[in-house]
Design a protein around this nucleic acid. Structure first.
Lengths: 237, 237
DNA sequence: ACCCTTGTGTAACGGTGGTTACCGAGCAGC
DNA sequence: GCTGCTCGGTAACCACCGTTACACAAGGGT
C-alpha cells in the first residue's frame, strides 16, 4: 500500500479531501527516495516545488552572515515545505537537508496552482500549518535565548522521539553527535560532553551513530529546567 | 483626520477594501491610547481581541522557563496582532507591551468574525502577514545564534530607524538601555558598553533616554559582520 | 587480518557574556 | 536649593561555550 495515494492521505494539508480527489492529486505527484544528508533545496538553485514528507526527517536551516548554519525547523512525516509563493508556503532563504534516508512526494507549481490554490479547505489548512510553524520558531528562539546546551539537547531529543508513535515505545534516534550539534546550534565537542552528562544521569544511552532514550518524562523535566536554582522571577518585580 | 477610518487605511490587512467598507469597519473599532511600558496582552488574562497599531511600537515577548523574557517580535504602525484563532492570528503564549506611547484600534472577535472571516481578500493578506512574521522570526533566530551582541544591537537599531520614513531623515530612537537590552536579549550592562563602542566608532550618538543614529549604512555593514576575521566557510568544506 | 575512514571522548585556552556591586549624572518634585 | 529617583557608566569575577589539538574505538572495504 505504499503508493502516492497513501502518501497524501497522511498529510494534514489534504485531510479534507475526498478519496477521489486525493487519488487525482497522487497521480500527479512523483515519489522520490533521498539519502541521509542530501540537500533537497538550496537558495542557490531555487526550484518552485512543493515537498511532502512521507518518511524520514528533514532539517531546514539558514546560513548566517558568518557562514555558520543555523537550524530553523525540524520536519517529520506528514508535513509539507517548499517554495510556492502562490499558496504562502515559502522557504525564505532556508536550505533543506534530509537527516535520514527519507521518502518525499514532489508536486510541480503548475499542479499546485491547478489543484490547491482555489480550494478554501486547503488554504485553511495552510494557515494552520503556518501558525504551527510560527509557534515552533518562537519555541526555538526562547530555547536558544535562555536554555543551556544540555537543556536544549534534552528538548531536541524529546521532540525527536515524540513524533515516532507507530511501533514500539522508543526507536533509537539515529543521528551522529555532529548532526545533533547542528540541530541545537552547538559544536560537536560540547554536544558530546553534554550527551555524556545526560547518559550519566540515566536519561539516555549512547551507542555509535544512535541514541536510545530511556526516560522521555525525565528528559522533558530536564529540558524545562529540572535542575536549577529556584530563581523564579515572575517578570517585573 | 485622525479618526479610526484613517487608522484602518494604513493597515496592510485592509488594503483591498473600498472606502465604504473601511468606514463600516472603522465605526466598530474603538481607538485607544496606551502609555509606554503598558502591557496590552498577557497569556494570564487572554482576551480575544484584534489589535491594530496606528502609532507607536509594540514588543512581543515570551517568558522562558527561567522566567527571563525573550523578545519574539517588534511591531510598528500598520501591523496587526492579537488572539483571534478564527483567522489564524494567534499570540501563542506571547505577551505584548507598548515600547512607546502608542495608539491602537481594537476589534472584537464578533466583528472579526462578521467582517473579516469570509472575505478572501483579507485572508490572503493575513497569509502574507504570517509569511512576513515567519521571515522575521527566522532572522531573529539566526541573529541570536551567530551574531555578537554589538552586531545584534546594530541590527536592531537599524530596523528601529527603518520604519520611520515620514518626517526628517533620522528621528532619534527613544528607548532606554534597559529596554534595548530586552530587545536584543542581553543585560543592561553589556548593552551599555556595546552602545558605547558603537558611539566611539561614530555610528550613533548617545543621550539620556534616546539614541541618534548618525549613519544607517555603516550600522548595517557592522550588523552584517562588518569587522571580523575573513573566515568565510561556505558550508561543508 | 589489515588499513582507513568516521564517529567519539577529553583536555587546555581564550573570548563572550551574565552577575554583582558601586558610583555618578540628569531630572522631577518639593 | 535639596532630595530622591531613574538612567547611564564601569569594573571584578565567573560560567558557558567555541577553538584547537589529540587519542582512541568501531566498522567497512580490501
Amino acid at each position: 500500500m505504499h503508493d502516492t495515494h497513501y502518501c497524501l492521505s497522511e498529510v494534514d494539508l489534504f485531510r479534507d479531501l475526498s478519496r477521489k480527489e486525493m487519488a487525482e492529486l497522487g497521480a500527479r505527484a512523483p515519489l522520490r527516495d533521498v539519502a541521509a544528508g542530501q540537500v533537497l533545496y538550496s537558495p542557490q538553485r531555487p526550484t518552485e516545488t512543493l515537498f511532502i514528507i512521507k518518511r524520514g526527517r528533514v532539517r531546514l536551516f539558514q546560513i548566517g552572515s558568518t557562514g555558520q548554519p543555523v537550524t530553523t525547523a525540524l520536519l517529520g512525516p506528514g508535513t509539507v515545505f517548499g517554495e510556492v509563493p502562490l499558496i504562502g508556503i515559502r522557504m525564505g532563504g532556508n536550505w533543506a537537508e534530509a537527516l535520514e534516508p527519507s521518502q518525499l512526494c514532489l508536486m510541480s507549481p503548475h499542479d499546485v496552482r491547478e489543484l490547491l490554490l482555489a480550494d478554501p479547505r486547503i488554504t485553511r489548512r495552510i494557515n494552520e500549518h503556518m501558525t504551527a510553524h510560527i509557534a515552533e520558531l518562537e519555541h526555538r528562539l526562547t530555547d536558544m535565548a535562555c536554555k543551556t546546551l544540555p537543556e536544549r539537547l534534552a528538548s531536541t531529543l524529546w521532540t525527536l522521539t515524540k513524533a515516532t508513535p507507530p511501533k514500539e515505545a522508543s526507536e533509537p534516534v539515529r543521528l551522529t553527535h555532529q548532526q545533533l550539534a547542528g540541530l541545537v546550534n552547538a559544536t560537536r565537542e560540547r554536544t558530546t560532553t553534554a550527551l555524556g552528562d545526560l547518559a550519566e544521569n540515566g536519561l539516555i544511552r549512547l551507542h555509535r551513530g544512535k541514541i536510545t532514550v530511556t526516560s522521555r518524562e525525565r528528559l522533558l523535566i530536564f529540558a524545562e529546567g529540572g535542575g536549577r536554582s529556584p530563581t523564579d522571577v515572575p517578570y517585573r518585580q
